[in-house]
Amino acid sequence: METTKKFKNPPLTEAVFELFYQTSTWNPATPGIYYSKVNKDYPIITQSGGGFGIALGAQGVQIGSGNNNLTQLKSHDNSSIIQLSNNLFTVNKLPKYNGWESYKEMILQAVELLYSTIDIQQINRIGLRAINKLDVKAHSLENFKRSFNVYPNMPNGIVNDFNSLQLNYETQFPNNEVLAINFTTLRKEPSYEAPVQFQLFYTKLSTIDKSYIEKWLDNAHMQLHSAFDHIVTKEQKEEFDND
């Protein structure tokens, strides 16, 4: 497998593995059963209503009572998170990211335990996402081009510059797979004068057998790594290695 370069100050703010699935064995106790299997590594548990509904209960009108409750299981330092609902399973890694092999192992273990908890009839979609945040110092075309090899091309005389942009690219790959790329300028925030969120997403929009997940993950990671490598300029990459 291709070795990925580790930067001193990587721009990755989150890695996300996501699985949309169908199951007939989900019940309200499922998050608790899953939690009992992972609580050593993910001791913090919270639950939020993912759906939206209105119910009249003993305490009056209650909202947010949809049946897509999302359970979050977090590590001690809140940097590793598993999210679980009746049709969505995610494994999220916030900084500090310890490299692909470590993250892949985390995903595969979490998926194995999911399969031992419920009967998954079908995976509808699988995806791997890398969310990066870079400081381009000023939201201008010139600075954007200094960081990225992908940029908007506007006709002369119409627009010469920008102070805000959102770009989405979606490219079809064989086997119903898609590489999606997004650039979004964000508001100024502490430590970022002119942040740009740079998202890479590789997904398969059809069913996949469990035995194929690891192979799919390696390929997805390779696609994301290749896209990152081609899109981010050499000058910007050198900045990731500055102290």
Partner: peptide, 12 residues
């Protein structure tokens, strides 16, 4: 857009 589903899965 396929990217919009990120709000379901991503913390960030």
């Amino acid at each position: 857009s396929i990217l919009d589903s990120g709000y379901l899965s991503s913390i960030e």
